[in-house]
Design a protein around this nucleic acid. Sequence first.
DNA 1: TTCGCAATCGACAGTATGTCGAAAAAGTCG
DNA 2: CGACTTTTTCGACATACTGTCGATTGCGAA
Lengths: 211, 211
Amino acid sequence: MSTLPGRRRGPSKGDRREQAILETARALLARKPLADITIDELAAGAEISRSSFYFYFDSKLAVVVALLHGITGELGRDAGPWLDGDGPDAESLRAALSALAVLWRDQGRLLTGAFAAAPGCPPLAQWRDGLRAAHVDRLAARIERDRAAGRAPAGPAPRVLAGLIDDLRTAAFAGTADPEALVDDLVTVELRMIYGDFGGSPLGRVIRQAP
Amino acid sequence: MSTLPGRRRGPSKGDRREQAILETARALLARKPLADITIDELAAGAEISRSSFYFYFDSKLAVVVALLHGITGELGRDAGPWLDGDGPDAESLRAALSALAVLWRDQGRLLTGAFAAAPGCPPLAQWRDGLRAAHVDRLAARIERDRAAGRAPAGPAPRVLAGLIDDLRTAAFAGTADPEALVDDLVTVELRMIYGDFGGSPLGRVIRQAP
DNA sequence: TTCGCAATCGACAGTATGTCGAAAAAGTCG
DNA sequence: CGACTTTTTCGACATACTGTCGATTGCGAA
C-alpha cells in the first residue's frame, strides 16, 4: 500500500518533523495567506534546512493537502440531519451551517488558499471537486425528494440548484471575516432558494400557505 | 493630471506598443489562465525585450488593471432597468444577467484571474470592491424599496442580502464554462432570494398569491 | 560491528521578477 | 542641418523562490 504522496516511507523518527511542518503551516496560516508562506519558513519552523523539507513533502501544496485531509471529515459534520431530512427544516440547516462557519472561522486562510490554488493543482482540484460533489449529490437528492412529495416548488434542475447553493456558501464564507455572523441569513436564503416561491413566479406555485 | 499608473507619460510612439501589450494579454488570456502568463510572453508578443515591458507597465497585474478598466463600464451595462425597477421583474433581471453572462463568457479568464489575485494586490482589490459596492448599493436600495412597499418579505438586512446575491453571481459565473446556460436559473434563484417565501417561513408571509 | 535505510544538508540549476544605467531612436527648435 | 531634450530600448545585475542531486551522517537491527 502506498503512503501519502511525498513522504517516502518508514515509521516514526522523522514523523515528529512531519508533524512540526504541519504545525508550522497551521500557525503561519493563522497569520497570513498561503501565498505569502514560503518553504523556507515552513522548514525553519520545523528546524530543518529548506532542502530537508522536500524529504517530507513534495511542495507547499502537498502540505496543504495533508492539512486538508485532517479537516475534510469535519467539513460535512453535522450536515446529516439537514441533508437526510425533509422540507424547510430551518433548525437542522442552521446546525449544518453553524458547524461549517466555525470551520471557516478557524481555518479560513487554509480553505481560502486551497480553493484559490485548486485550479492548476490537480490534487487540490480533486479534493475540492470531491467535496463539492458529495454535498451537491446529497442536496440534489433532497431537493428531488421534496419536489416529488410536493414540498418544494419546481425550479432549476436539482443538481444545478444544489451547485449554486454550494457556490454561495463558499463565496460567502470565503469573503467575510466573521462567518458565524452570516449563518442566520444563509439559512433564510438557502431555504428560499429551495422552497421560496412568490405570486409572480413564472413557474410553480405556493405549495403551503401560512395558516 | 496623472495618467494610468505605470506608464510614465508622453504622446504616441510607444503607445502602439502599449496597445500591443494589452492585445497580447487579451490573446493569451483567451488560451490560458493569468497565472500561467509570464512577462516574457507579454513582451515577446509586443516585440520588445522583457525589460522594455517595464517601461509601459509596472507589473503583470498592472496590465490586468488596464484591461479591466476597458470593460468595467460594460459590467453594469443593462442592469439599470432591473436595479431601478420594482418587484419581481424577471425580464429585466434576465436582461441584466444575460449581459453579464456574455461578459463572463468572453472575459472569463481575465475576470477569474482578477478576482483571484485581488487579495494581495491593492489596485485589484480596490477595483473589485468598488464594483461590488456599486452593485450592492443599488440592489440593497431596491430591496429596501420593495420591502417598504410590501412587495418583498422581510429577511436579511438589504445590504447583506445584496452582498450574498453578488457573491453568488460571481461564484457561479467563475465556476462554469458556459455562463449563459446559468442565466435562467440565476433569475429564478435571485428572485427567490429576494421575494421567495414559503409556508414554513419563520418570518414574513406570502405577499401575493397566485390567482 | 557492520549493513542498510532514514534523515540531513550544501551546492546547483532553473525560472521569474524587478532595477539600473548606458545608449540608441525620435522629436524639437534655432 | 546640427545641438539638445525626451522617449524608448536593452543588456547586465541583483533577488527571491523552487526543486534536484549527490554526499554524508545518524541510527536501528541482524
